[in-house]
Design a protein around this nucleic acid. Structure first.
Lengths: 142, 142
DNA sequence: CCGACTGTCACGCAGCGTGAATGTAG
DNA sequence: TCTACATTCACGCTGCGTGACAGTCG
């Protein structure tokens, strides 16, 4: 009972500026991701404009989400490929499933680091606020 | 009723490797921060080794904490200078106090962005875990 | 035909990593 | 004297920013 696949002609195609607005990446970054073979455009207009499907947009979202995790290009490519294959209903091998789980754990670990950073930043922020207030109070008293 | 300042000779001096271990920065990074005039060494041994005071270490901690906030070098230098002056008991002008408060608010804003990133990462992590589990289950069934 | 959008170079910069060759500390 | 730690070049890399100049879209 598979859903009928929407025809390619049904899918809206986006040009680069639209994608940039949607996902919040610069044009340069989007082009760069193509340059390094991370998220190539699905097509080109007759005049040479890059055209992206909604799936492409989703890939950009994934990349953006994983960017702060500092994975290597190699790893990002691998991860995107795995997700693509899952999306297309392809069966993953045990090894691939394992890699997916590893990425998930790696993400958890790095998220932990990010949380620590936030904690440190927050502490400093509090200190700054306090210092600023104290400094303001002293100048009032004078 | 000022506390008697501890003599410089009382303060322990650290060489670069020790500092690196304490704050968790690479030697290269520490030298780089000196190169760009962010945290210069307080002194040098007779043979040319960089020597750092506990205050210097604290400055490295501040820089490290603010690193994920992506402030410019200019801003980091300014902030460190302000904190130094506060530390030394120097009165800040109203303008400076204001800048301090602005940095604090900027830190809050950027921390917010970091939180969003973590949320996005977490969502993706959950998805990955789930996908991996589903994939594993299917291969078992086969 | 106009203005907004996009294309491809190509240079530049931050923030380090990574040697190599040499000197210092204890 | 040994060796662990430090020094200064200096080149390399990633991840884009930022024009410049030309072509495309509607």
């Amino acid at each position: 009972v598979t859903q009928p696949e929407p025809l390619p002609s049904d899918r809206p195609l986006h040009q680069i500026g639209e994608v940039a607005d949607i996902v919040g990446l610069s044009l340069r970054t989007i082009r760069y991701y193509e340059e390094v073979d991370l998220v190539p455009a699905s097509g080109r207009s007759s005049g040479g404009f890059r055209l992206y499907t909604d799936e492409d947009v989703e890939r950009f979202r994934v990349v953006k989400a994983f960017k702060p995790l500092k994975f290597s290009l190699e790893q990002m490519r691998d991860l995107l490929a795995l997700l693509d294959r899952v999306e297309h209903g392809t069966r993953l091998t045990a090894v691939e499933t394992d890699r997916l789980a590893q990425y998930a754990r790696a993400a958890d670990d790095r998220a932990e680091v990010l949380r620590d950073q936030i904690a440190a930043v927050t502490r400093l922020s509090v200190l700054l606020h306090r210092t600023a207030r104290a400094s303001a109070a002293r100048s009032k008293r004078a």
